[in-house]
Amino acid sequence: MTAACNGTGGIVAAVIIGLALLVVVPLVVDPIFLIELTSYVILAILALSLGLIWGYGGILCFGQSAFFGIGAYAYAIAVINMGDSTIPLILSIVVPALFAALLGYFLFYARITDVYFGVITLTVTLILYKLMGTTSGSAYTIGNAAIGGYNGIPAIPPLNLPGSPTTFLSLDGLFYAAGLTLLAVYVGLRLMLKSRFGQVVVAIRENERRAELLGYDARFYKLAAFTIGGGIAGLAGCLFANWGMFISPDVFGLAQSAQVIIWVIVGGTGTLLGPIVGCFLVQWIATQLGTQQVLNANLVLGTILIGFVLLVPKGITPTVLDLIERTCQRRSYAKPLVEKRSVS
């Protein structure tokens, strides 16, 4: 069991399960819920990006939503001007990745420590929130795209087949596109973490000084991981702009920034499955709470978060994996326990 969670076997299993869910889920859930579910899938990509840089890189970024929002705005502005969505899609990854690289360069090379890093990244996203809010009026247009201040950009054209601007992605299609993207990002990150680069990033999280004394430039590796995380968050932003066909400065807001962190805490840091599970669970609970009038939704969500931090501090996924592992261990006591942890 534990061996199956590891290595190539685990990745193949993840692909099969992921594809199976993609095929089966639209057949069994009602269409309205499928739209809801599509947003969970998109936000899970955002959660994965923080799962990478916080869970594996040890970098607590409180402003992951900044890259999400920049990706969304980059896509929206570019696609309104270009019509064809191919280049805007690429821009939605490249622009936030470059922004992350620039921001990260100053922070990592100045050796800003953890707490300050969190404060600065939070400030950056809040600055972007205010900044985008001031862009109402006809003076603030880029080409044909009016940025629209706090009203945001409405009627964003959806993704189309590359080279064929008239073949748009339907809402059902977006579910498959988002699902495949989530799966691709997950598998890509699994492979990356198995590589030398991934191992070094984890080693730096464990002990930065030791990694440097072994000859690795921690600043560079952290910057690279941070940039990749920024690109992934931007891609999620692009899909999110597609989902609502609308984007506003709220994506940079405090609520959005905090939410990403909550998903990762609930799902569990140090795994890739955790942030996905956390995102789905918290978003689902939030939706369910929204349908009733008895209790204040935020109050209940807050209680759940406090409960998690106190009772399940490692998050759902690591706790469940530990339980499975312990059960396996008891059953096959004679077997030596090699490859104890799993990168899930």
Partner: peptide, 14 residues
């Protein structure tokens, strides 16, 4: 000064 949450093998291979 080691990587506590990595295995002995991973420590040495890094």
């Amino acid at each position: 000064d080691v990587f506590n949450n990595l295995t002995v093998r991973e420590n040495i291979s890094v």
